[in-house]
Each structure stands twice: as C-alpha cells, then as structure tokens.
Design a protein around this nucleic acid. Sequence first.
DNA 1: AAGTTTATCAACCGCCTCCGT
DNA 2: GACGGAGGCGGTTGATAAACT
Length: 293
Amino acid sequence: MGRSPCCAKEGLNRGAWTAREDKTLTDYIKINGEGRWRDLPIKAGLKRCGKSCRLRWLNYLKPDIKRGNITDDEEDLIIRLHKLLGNRWSLIAKRLPGRTDNEIKNYWNTNIGKRIQGRPNSMSHPKLINQSDEHNHIDAKESALVDEQRHASCAIRTKASRCTKVFILQDPQKNKVHKDIGTMIDEPFTDQGKGRPELVREESLDGSSKWTLDEHDSSDFLIDVDMDEKFLSEVLEAGISLLPNIDNGNESRGEVFGSDMDHSSHQSSDKCIYSPKEIRDKSDANWLDNLLE
DNA sequence: AAGTTTATCAACCGCCTCCGT
DNA sequence: GACGGAGGCGGTTGATAAACT
C-alpha cells in the first residue's frame, strides 16, 4: 500500500494563483501565522493543496521577498556558493536575503548553468579575450564561471552509504588534505578517475584499518560528497569537522575540533563536545563566510 | 502581421528527513 | 526501533511572454 497523497486532488484548483486566492492566503497567514499547511486550505477556505499554499507563500507572497533582477553581486555569490554547495538551492538561498531557492534555481538553470554548459573552450570566449576596463567586472564573473566549470568537471562523487566519522587534517608542509573517513559500514566507492580524489584503505600493524580520502584540492571536499545525508547536512551547516565518538557507540554526540574552518591547526586542547543538534543550532559558524572571502 | 522558436519562472511532483507517538 | 504525518527540498513541467523569421 502506497503512501497517502498529501491531499485529495479532487475539486482543488491548480495552476496559476488568482489575486483573490493570494489575498485569502496572505490574510490567513497574517492572522494565524505559518505552519500547519495541510489544514490551512480548509481553515482559510482555499481550494488548494497545502503544499501549494506553502509554496505560494514562501516563493511569492512572503513580505520580505526581494523582487527584481538578480544583481551582479548576487550572481557572483550564487556562483561561488554553487561551487561550494552544489545544487543545494535552499542553502544557497539562505545566503541571499530575500531570494528564494526556487528563484535561484530558476536563475541558475536559465542563465548561469547554460553559460557554463555552452562553453566548450572557455578561453575562446570573446568576453575573456576582451581585457578593456569596462569589461573587467564581466571578466571576473566569467572567470568564476570557468572556475565553476572546472570544479564541476571534477566534482567528488564518493559514494558511501554511511560514514560515522570524518576528521580533516591539513598537512602544512605538503599542502595536502587528508580526510580520514573512519569506520565505513559498507565498502566505500572509490573513484580512481583522472584527477579525482580517491578513498584509500590504510592498514596498521595492529590490524586496525581506516579509509582515507586523498586529494589535493580542499575546496572540493564539500561538493557532492554523497555520504549519509544527515551527516553531510550537518557538516555543511556547521562548517566544522565532526568526529562522533564511536568508541562508546554513541553516535548522537560528536567531538568538534575548533570553531571555524582553520583546518591547519587542530589542537586537542581545542576539543569540545556538541551534539549534531547543537552543532546545527550553532551553525552558520563563519565557515561559508570564510570560504567566500 | 502571422507563425515559430526560445526564454522565463511559477507551480507541480515525488522523494526525503524530521519529529512525535 | 518502527511507524506515520508534516514539512522541506530539488528536479521537472507547462503556461506565458518575448524574440525571431
């Protein structure tokens, strides 16, 4: 037996919203607040699915939504955030006040994405050849696009069904990042493609072993690392390295080294304990800000 | 001016996670 | 731990506008 639909489809309006429906929804939310989307259409007297109401409110009716074209600065930020986060539109949208994930997604698909896709040889692009001052800001953006294209072509696609500990170290001498993948429940995916990071199993004399993700470009780490989704979102949101305590089998708490993304200096004295929930709450740590600077 | 193609973006769909029980 | 409801998310669709022939 399949899952029941979010609402009965019969007798519901579909397609574009009318001004009257918009007003009904806005008035209802002003009085009763957001939430309880499933009940909302009945209580508000709308012949719409609850999900549809939520989407309409979040993407169009919400007062703080910014209207108008995406600015150059916003586009630049979107490109850089996409490089870091991939198609995680909601995370990207959180960094652009007033912009919705849907709007950013649409903008990407109709503008930036196409420009990246339609660029077989970036250096032959006329805008990149033009070095005049008036085009400098465009060139910078194009450069970012080229960079994005380069990163997209070598996105990490590690496929691990679950990962219980990640420890990020940076070897300052070799400027090389090691990511100890730790205890893998399933065999990790190893991509030995050209120029891609690789998961390496390191065995010690005492018989223990660990998986290491070996690569040269630390900025790729957070892109498309398809591990346990919950864990990944925690890392993305917290912006810190997370080392759950596996010795006592309690995965609900973790040891967090440092409070920012300075991977180069993990001193054990900096260690503090947070639960993933606490980490989420403390999130927004300055990680993305630091990376974007 | 009419027909066709392309671009845009609001809305939908289905899957997923979270959270309460 | 299992289950189910609620909400969130990303991919896709389709209606409409704009550009082009």
